[in-house]
């Protein structure tokens, strides 16, 4: 026994903890992972880059969109797809923390109950923002251009990342319910993959068979992609923009309380 630990002054103001500072502590923890293991970040960019190259150079020649280059058409889909695929990591990471007993520790601490979830979803949104920014650079190298100015370009990136943020909460709910890393990963793929491809992300939905077209038109990913695309390509303000903001808010209104409830009962 070398050092007598000094008596501690615990913050007694609020036994439920401090939502903002607790969330920041955990966001920092989650982001440090990418600083310490940069390869994680590298690999989360490899897949979207491959999608860009695949669609532009393999399928792109066979897809013609009137009035716009396919690369400019595609990038909105890539931004949203990247954010949505990235958001599936939220549930996987939560399941991983549960498996390691970290969630048990957090739940035994006098901290905010929502902070673990907010710290996770915010840091995943941060990572998504990094990745879509990188996709922009990759896009510029192969000829992509924002056509509607800087503000709209920023708005396009933020919109796709916000959509990913909302989907992170769906993924969190899945992770908290399933509690197992591999199963959560598999479960995310099952709904995210068809949802993303049965949308306007890569091709116009006009070419779909009518039943799929109906589905695609109602698909929130189509709404998000169309809104992002409108911000990239310019033109009149699109109702998809307000619809996609509404989708984000509705998803958050449903899944944030659901996740907090699941977290309390883990």
């Amino acid at each position: 026994m070398t050092t007598e630990a000094a008596p501690v002054e615990l913050d007694k103001r609020n036994p439920r903890g401090h939502f903002v500072s607790d969330s920041l502590v955990l966001t920092k923890r989650n982001l440090l992972k990418y600083v310490r293991v940069p390869t994680l970040l590298v690999f989360s960019t490899v897949q979207p880059i491959m999608f860009v190259l695949l669609f532009v150079y393999v399928f792109g020649g066979a897809i013609s969109i009137p009035g716009v280059s396919y690369t400019n058409f595609l990038m909105a889909g890539i931004f949203v797809q990247t954010s949505i695929f990235g958001s599936t990591q939220t549930g996987v990471s939560l399941a991983e923390d549960m498996g390691k007993g970290l969630i048990d520790r957090f739940r035994s601490l006098p901290m905010s109950r929502a902070a673990v979830l907010v710290g996770r979803t915010v840091s995943d949104a941060g990572r998504n923002l990094f990745v879509v920014t990188l996709m922009t650079i990759v896009g510029y190298i192969i000829g992509f251009r924002f056509q509607a100015g800087f503000i709209n370009a920023i708005a396009a990136l933020l919109l796709s990342v916000s959509f990913g943020f909302a989907f992170s909460w769906i993924s969190a709910a899945i992770g908290l319910a399933i509690r197992d890393v591999e199963s959560t990963q598999a479960a995310s793929f099952v709904w995210v993959f068809p949802l993303t491809f049965a949308s306007s992300a890569f091709v116009p939905v006009e070419g779909f068979p009518s039943w799929l077209k109906t589905f695609a038109e109602w698909n929130p990913i189509t709404v998000a992609v169309d809104a992002t695309r409108a911000l990239i390509l310019g033109g009149e303000l699109n109702p998809d923009l307000w619809q996609s903001v509404a989708w984000v808010l509705v998803l958050l209104a449903i899944f944030v309380p659901l996740c907090v409830r699941l977290y309390k009962k883990v």
Binding site: V8, E9, L10, D11, K12, G17, H18, S21, D22, V25, L26, R29, L32, K33, R36, V37, K100, G101, L102, D104, R105, F106, S108, L109, P110, M111
Partner: peptide, 27 residues
């Protein structure tokens, strides 16, 4: 609480782990 598996973050350093828990205790 110390549970059955060592509930520490592998990526963080020992000090960062302790600091994080301290902050979450309200320090």
């Amino acid at each position: 609480l110390a549970g059955q598996s060592a509930a520490v973050d592998e990526i963080l350093t020992g000090m960062e782990n302790i600091e994080m828990v301290g902050r979450l205790y309200g320090l």
